[in-house]
């Protein structure tokens, strides 16, 4: 068998080479930039750790980090649990389910840039569709785009709209793979639907839940397009994500050293969170 094991390299090596070629250079380059003084794209000297130190005194950095964390928390939790809820509701035989499911894939293909602009119309405060709907439901005028907290919520809603279907489809698939016999046995033992869910469904579906959470986490940390086109990060910097701030600092203001330092910080955060998750994921799987 030893010979075969060696041969396995053939399979992974192309992908590894590819990633080395296309990500190692950018990574090394931006690391070098992050410890340099850069002016208009030209490295003019060594900055040591000063770009990293600058981060700690930059209130805007902490503000964007705070928003990023709030956003990640709200939207990851909301998409996953809405997706799970819908998946539980639709985990049954019914007509038109497949059509329903493919309808739900449409948001995944909507370019987030366009979605943000569409949001400007949907969340229009003076008699926009969302506010009119809320008026019928007896709520007052909601300042969706002109108030920091509501703007945060608006961004989260757009993200939830786009990604709930993703969670739903994967989780539904997960649920449907649980065999009926397990349920039948469980229903004989207990009559409480909650108990069935808590002790049977949840443990069985949790590996999938882990995957969904993981993928959503990684992507939510990088969100850029929607705040960019819906609120431009405003009012003030209330809805600026860290990625957005890195982008502005690096590509608009060409303060590349600082931008790269922040990018490394963001990379570190996501890696740590990812690793913690992955460890848990591993425990569940192996």
């Amino acid at each position: 068998m030893k010979k075969r094991r060696e041969k396995g390299n053939v399979f992974v090596i192309p992908a590894i080479i590819w990633i080395f070629v296309f990500t190692i250079f950018p990574l090394v380059y931006s690391f070098r930039v992050s410890i340099s003084r850069v002016s208009y794209g030209k490295i003019t000297g060594l900055a040591g750790l000063s770009n990293y130190i600058r981060m700690f005194g930059d209130y805007r950095f902490w503000g964007t980090l705070r928003f990023t964390l709030i956003f990640v928390l709200i939207s990851v939790v909301a998409t996953t649990f809405l997706g799970l809820g819908l998946a539980l509701v639709f985990n049954r035989k019914m007509r038109g389910l497949k059509f329903f499911r493919s309808l739900l894939t449409m948001p995944l293909f909507t370019a987030p840039v366009a979605l943000g602009y569409l949001g400007v119309m949907m969340f229009y405060e003076e008699n926009g569709p969302v506010n009119v709907l809320l008026k019928y439901l007896g709520m007052g005028k909601v300042p969706w785009l002109s108030h920091p907290w509501w703007a945060t919520l608006a961004i989260c809603m757009v993200d939830v709209w786009q990604w709930t279907p993703f969670a739903f489809i994967i989780l539904l698939a997960g649920l449907q793979s649980i065999s009926d016999e397990i349920y039948e046995a469980a229903i004989i033992d207990t009559s409480s639907g909650w108990a069935v869910f808590r002790y049977i469904t949840l443990p069985l579906v949790s590996p999938v839940l882990g995957t969904v959470l993981m993928l959503r986490l990684v992507d939510a940390f990088k969100v850029f397009d929607v705040p960019f086109s819906l609120t431009s990060g405003g009012p003030g910097t209330a809805t600026r994500t860290l990625t957005f701030y890195i982008y502005t600092q690096g590509l608009r203001n060409f303060d590349l050293g600082y931008a790269s330092a922040m990018a490394y910080f963001l990379l570190a955060i996501t890696m740590v969170i990812g690793m913690l998750f992955f460890r848990r994921y591993r425990e569940l799987y192996e």
């Binding site: 002109s146 108030h147 920091p148 990060g233 405003g234 009012p235 003030g236 910097t237 209330a238 502005t248 608009r252 203001n253 303060d255």
Partner: peptide, 22 residues
């Protein structure tokens, strides 16, 4: 040099002022 960056920062602070954040 840096005009666009300065204006952008100004823009943000003005927005913070009109929305009552500061």
């Amino acid at each position: 040099p840096g005009t666009p960056e300065m204006w952008e920062i100004w823009d943000i602070h003005l927005s913070e002022a009109v929305t009552g954040q500061v």
